[in-house]
Design a protein around this nucleic acid. Structure first.
Lengths: 231, 231
DNA sequence: TCATCTCAGGTTCTCTGACAACTGGAGAGC
DNA sequence: GCTCTCCAGTTGTCAGAGAACCTGAGATGA
């Protein structure tokens, strides 16, 4: 692998970058119909095939969509990954607060929408969490998070699922440290088992209010610790 | 907006899907050098240009990378933007439901944490929304969303801010279509002004319960429309 | 007046062919 | 063993042609 290519980037890549900049700079907001291929080729001083390939790259990135005969339209701007940066840099307390907010509402939905299959998955995850109680902190936290993910999944909203998954890396980091710092598992390696069992029972019974209360109590006590300044 | 295209997908999209499946199925793991363009064109029974465009789409999605003379290589087996993909592809009702869930809880926090500066920003945004009432649907929806963003910002949680921003492109799309479809602004160009004014008053007064109720009523009625199957 | 149809111009889609630029491996020479 | 050259195969770019599609304007008919 050379340290750096000494020849310029292929024209398609340059064109892709130029067009992408038009989008991310706000020049072409969502909904904009891009100039036609022939016009863009003239503007960029490249062949039409080069423009087409650049547009395909932007389409593959999810920024544009083309309709034959109608044109190519901006369907998304490419934010600067602000969300993921924020999630990486934010105080764990802020992250956890949003997680809590989301999940407490999610269990209300889960209590309404859960299927027998969802409940079976929750109970299987609870069993796995119990099994992980004999292992190290990281594995235990992973099993705990996996259990919560099954509860969120029962809300039957793919956006929620995906959003919860976005939180997992940060949650994992924060929770492993917290469990270690507080030595939560010294007295009880299966810390929180009763609450999780109650949670699943409540969801199973369709009692959203109770499920939310159980989960809120659990997450709230954790949040309080996460918000406590560390010495 | 057509209910569904009655003609088959463009060949480039089909080829992209086929090639992507080879990657995501594990047939072509990371590091694999794909067959050459000429070979792929023969395999897929399309022209070489079609293959090239499909490969560009995959490159734009971050799955492959090509080196002139050397070949095209798999660099990832999963798109790296699962969350964003979900947000783009999900049913607008699912998106809106999560937005609602988030925002109703956010206003509870906002009612506790708002500063005088936050409230001033909300009122300025309300004024801007009123001004946008004289313009087109898109501008009005933008002003509406901006107002909601000021309310979320008052919750003083950067993760919430950033997360709300993630929803904006999808919300914008859905809401502009809804406003247009239902002709919500024919009778009242400044649709929903009273509710928004009440919302700000409640946040200003620190009445989280009332703020949540006002917002829930607003968002719930919109969600109901978004969940209604379109004829 | 309104609804429907037709047409023209502009758009994207696909293919072909040609040539340029590049890579990597094999073989030859030192 | 190292370096250079050559060659086959690869990607990159362009041009051109025709097909398929979309949209808006205008014409026609009820």
């Amino acid at each position: 692998m050379p340290l750096g290519a000494l020849h310029s980037a292929p024209l398609v890549e340059q064109a892709t970058t130029r067009l992408r900049e038009q989008i991310t700079s706000g020049e072409w907001p969502v909904g904009t119909r891009l100039p036609g291929e022939v016009s863009l080729a003239a503007t960029l001083s490249v062949g039409r095939s080069t423009v087409r390939e650049a547009l395909r790259a932007l389409a593959g990135a999810g920024l544009v969509r083309s309709r034959q005969g109608a044109g190519v339209f901006v369907i998304a701007t490419e934010p600067s990954r602000e969300w993921r940066d924020t999630l990486r840099r934010a105080a764990v307390g802020d992250i956890y607060e949003v997680r809590m907010l989301l999940e407490v509402q999610a269990v209300r939905l889960a209590a309404v929408r859960r299927t027998a299959k969802d409940v079976a998955a929750m109970r299987a995850a609870l069993a796995a969490r119990r099994q992980a109680a004999t292992t190290d902190d990281a594995a235990f936290v992973d099993a705990d998070i996996a259990l919560h993910a099954t509860v969120v999944a029962a809300a039957a909203n793919p956006v929620l699922d995906s959003l919860f998954a976005e939180f997992i890396p940060a949650l994992r980091r924060g929770l492993i440290e917290l469990v270690d710092l507080l030595e939560l598992r010294v007295a009880d390696a299966n810390h929180g088992d009763a609450a999780h069992s109650d949670l699943i029972d409540a969801v199973d019974a369709g009692d959203g209010r109770r499920a939310a209360a159980v989960l809120r109590a659990e997450l709230d006590s954790t949040l309080r610790w996460l918000r406590t300044p560390t010495v």
